[in-house]
Design a binder for these strands. Structure first.
Lengths: 210, 210
DNA sequence: AAATTGTACGAACGATCGTATTATTAGTTT
DNA sequence: AAACTAATAATACGATCGTTCGTACAATTT
């Protein structure tokens, strides 16, 4: 039998979790390169080598940080949308929760993936590849959500094209808000663009969710 | 009189130019933080202290690099658009030259400002501030270009809103192309979104520029 | 010809980086 | 109680970072 609770492993998991929670916050502001093991150790009042031992290399720390950010992202953006029925309503909720995810600074530096993807977009290696994979996952999820609305006859649009456009509005609002020192008005602007775009794609007689 | 040509100043200007030309390329891939004086010196076969002396601090080097990138950007994106008459045609040309600026990798890491703005969006200081200023300049230029088309009766749209949307399509295509290892098809997708959006805003009877 | 100025260099600084090695401590198994 | 294992720590390494200092050289001004 092995419903074992090894206290040492429990402790290890806890510190690992604490490290990653801090790591995603640091990386969202200073990037995955600026994320250093020494700084992580200092802020958590642990030893550099202790933190290091959890990952074995900086690259593995970066990959683990991305995966941790993905879990937080799923909870903040995807879950709220999947709580409502498929269709146009879900597309709208997904947009709303994304903007709120950025506006409320779930990560202090704004969208973690916008930051990290730009940082590693032009580099090669496992970090780039994982970020590309996460991005594709996300785009496909948006596409899929739109497709459901199309299948239900609520939208008349090319899902791939519309997904590109909605995602563009999300990211652009995120960056503009950062550059304008957390100015919230850009989110209203993005919301307006999203609403207008969805209205133009909505089929006649479809109830609009806003 | 002083139509003087001080040979020492000429030489200094030349190396300074060479440093900045290299600096924008490095920074577009590795960021303004990853841009290091030592690496710059090595690649240019100069001395670290010689390169450093031109700027006095790393921050000044970063600011000078941003200004150098702005000049290149103006030549690659703005100039071609201003070569055509104001109006919808200019809006379209601006979009085309932006996408070509990204696609052809005027900077090897894609759009310099998308990269740098994300890097410094959540930080404070002169670098952030200059990037915010450049961004506002750019958005205002797009807005202005759209406004001219509105005034000529070729477009019926809120310039601020439309500028936000076009710019979102630009940046999103740029990032997607980087993440998908220089896949060109995203530019066609962006172009499609731009064209459709401009069509929907064009007034009846306006000749479409594509 | 002498003095001054601007550019570039070489060497060194303290700090921080990622990583490797070795030791200590706490929890589990025998 | 002894042997073992997993998590954490202490220390040190070479490399690179931004920056400072003193100097050499070439071009300009006096």
């Amino acid at each position: 039998m092995d419903t074992r609770i090894d206290g040492r492993l429990v402790r290890g998991d806890q510190t690992r979790r604490a490290v990653l929670r801090r790591a995603v916050d640091i990386a969202s502001v200073d990037g995955l390169v600026g994320l250093s093991i020494g700084r992580l150790a200092k802020e958590l009042e642990a030893s550099k080598s202790g933190v290091f031992a959890h990952f074995g290399s900086k690259e593995e720390l970066q990959l683990a940080t991305i995966r941790a950010a993905r879990r937080i992202y799923a909870g903040a953006v995807v879950q709220p949308a999947f709580a409502v029925e498929p269709g146009l309503g879900r597309v709208w909720t997904l947009s709303e929760s994304w903007l709120e995810y950025s506006r409320s600074r779930v990560f202090p530096g704004g969208c973690f993936f916008a930051k990290a993807s730009h940082e590693y977009g032009a580099r090669r290696g496992p970090v780039h590849d994982l970020l590309a994979e996460v991005n594709q996952e996300w785009i496909q999820l948006v596409e899929q959500t739109i497709s459901e609305a199309v299948e239900r006859g609520e939208l008349d649009a090319d899902p791939s094209q519309l997904a590109f456009e909605l995602n563009a509005f999300y990211d652009s609002a995120n960056l503009a808000s950062l550059l304008r020192d957390n100015d919230d008005t850009v989110y209203a602007q993005a919301r307006q663009s999203i609403r207008t775009r969805l209205e133009s794609a909505a089929t006649a007689g479809t109830a609009l969710p806003w």
